[in-house]
Simulated scan of single mutants.
Amino acid sequence: MSPTSHSLTSTPEAHHPRARPSRMGPHLAAVAPGVLLTAAIAAAALALRAIPTISGASPMLLAILIGILAHNVVGTPQWAVPGVKFSLRRVLRFAIILLGLQLTTAQLIEVGGEGLAIIAATLLATFSFTVWFGRLLGVDRKLAELIAAGTSICGASAIIATNTVTRADDEDVAYGVACVTVFGSLAMVIYPLLQGVLGLDAHGFGLWTGASIHEIAQVVAASFQGGQSAGEFGTIAKLSRVMMLAPLVIGLGLLARVRTRHQPSAPGKAAPPMPWFVLGFVAMIGLNEVIAIPHETKAWIVAATGFLLSMALAAMGLETDLRKLAARGLRPALLGLTAALFIAGFSLALIKLTGWHG
């Protein structure tokens, strides 16, 4: 390992995240190399998907893996540190705001009140169960919250959004992303095999996939195997679930501030920042409702959002120490598996008990 590969958290910037250069010029010059590095890794992740054997892999997963490999083999150079941190904070927040342009309130109407109730109940139950079971297993609270958010809402995007208020170690974020990627991918393969066995019609299968599979891409891949109608409804159900990211992250931010205020052992500890950028996410949903964005433009926005999220995860990888990641052990993986089984079983039970057919 090179001398430059020591933990980025030891740099002065990590201890003073709110410090700002006095002039914009020097600031841009400082962050540009690292931002270009994360963009190059994101581009490499997209290019790797041209290889048939990994064409189905998420570019976000590939980006974090490349970043982890680079950091642990050759080290993250000091000249890249400011830009890596910029990608991990500013670029991430901007990408989540743009994510709102993929959603509309009309999608909520199409799912219907009962369908939304099933999705919301599944989300709340899964998040609560995962945090509780994590405590039972002895998994660190912050890591348990990240796995809970990734499982209950939208995979890696939810994990990195939630971490803006949870403020877990980068290794925890990497572990959480790995969990939702592995178990979401397994669900993507297994769910279509169960549609006939479980007696689910197209809309029922679409709701089940949208309410319980981790990533949007995984939902699309699984639900369309049940037919065009199942695929379209599964995608809409999943996007409706993604809308619930905003209230969850804001709620966790408020809870974190209350928790910090009542910690006598850390009187000088700064309160976690409120995730105000999530309001930008909500504003973009509203904008998408009142302005008709051309299909070609929306496709470009979707691609740009995915690329920016891949940049943020590349930055996460460039801050991840594999030795610290291995120290987490297998208990968080067991938590991720149990959470995946819980969300699948709970959502299916609600669909069956309510007799929901869309």
Rank of each mutant, 00 (worst) to 15 (best):
Pro267Asn: 09
Leu248Thr: 13
Leu322Thr: 14
Leu254Met: 14
Gly231Glu: 09
Leu325Pro: 11
Gln78Trp: 04
Leu123Tyr: 01
Ile190Tyr: 12
Gly34Pro: 01
Gly286Gln: 04
Leu92Trp: 00
Leu207Thr: 04
Gly286Lys: 10
Thr4Gly: 01
Leu325Ala: 06
Pro192Met: 10
Gly251Leu: 14
Thr181Ala: 14
Leu137Arg: 05
Val173Cys: 04
Thr235Leu: 15
Leu108Trp: 13
Ile250Met: 15
Leu103Ala: 08
Val173Asn: 00
Ala299Cys: 05
Thr297Cys: 12
Arg331Ile: 02
Ala19Trp: 13
Met316Asp: 02
Met311Ala: 01
Lys269Leu: 09
Ala39Ile: 00
Phe342Glu: 07
Arg257Gln: 15
Thr354Gly: 08
Val282Gln: 12
Phe233Ala: 02
Arg261Ala: 15
Ile343Gly: 02
Thr164Tyr: 01
Leu313Val: 10
His295Gln: 14
Phe129Lys: 07
Leu350Met: 15
Ala312Met: 01
Gln102Trp: 01
His262Leu: 15
Pro264His: 12
Leu116Gly: 07
Phe281Ile: 05
Thr305Gly: 09
Leu318Val: 08
Gly210Lys: 14
Ile301Ser: 03
Ile250Ser: 04
Glu145His: 13
Ile97Met: 14
Lys142Asp: 12
Ala50Tyr: 03
Val249Gln: 08
Gly150Val: 10
Ile236Val: 15
Leu62His: 12
Leu116Lys: 03
Gly206Ser: 07
Gly251Thr: 14
Asn288Ala: 09
Thr338Asp: 00
Ala217Val: 10
His71Lys: 15
Trp132Asp: 03
Leu341Gly: 15
Phe277Trp: 12
Ser152Ile: 11
Thr164Arg: 08
Gly100Phe: 06
Gly336Met: 07
Gly196Asn: 12
Pro267Ser: 07
Met243Trp: 02
Ser310Lys: 00
Val180Tyr: 02
Arg167Asp: 10
Trp300Tyr: 07
Ala304Phe: 13
Ala106Asp: 14
Ala246Cys: 10
Leu252Ser: 06
Val177Asn: 02
Leu322Trp: 11
Gln218Cys: 06
Ala70Trp: 08
Ala120Cys: 12
Phe133Val: 06
Phe86Glu: 11
Ala304Gly: 05
Phe127His: 14
Gly134Pro: 06
Val173Phe: 02
Ala256Lys: 11
Val197Ala: 14
Leu186Thr: 01
Ile285Cys: 10
Leu28Phe: 11
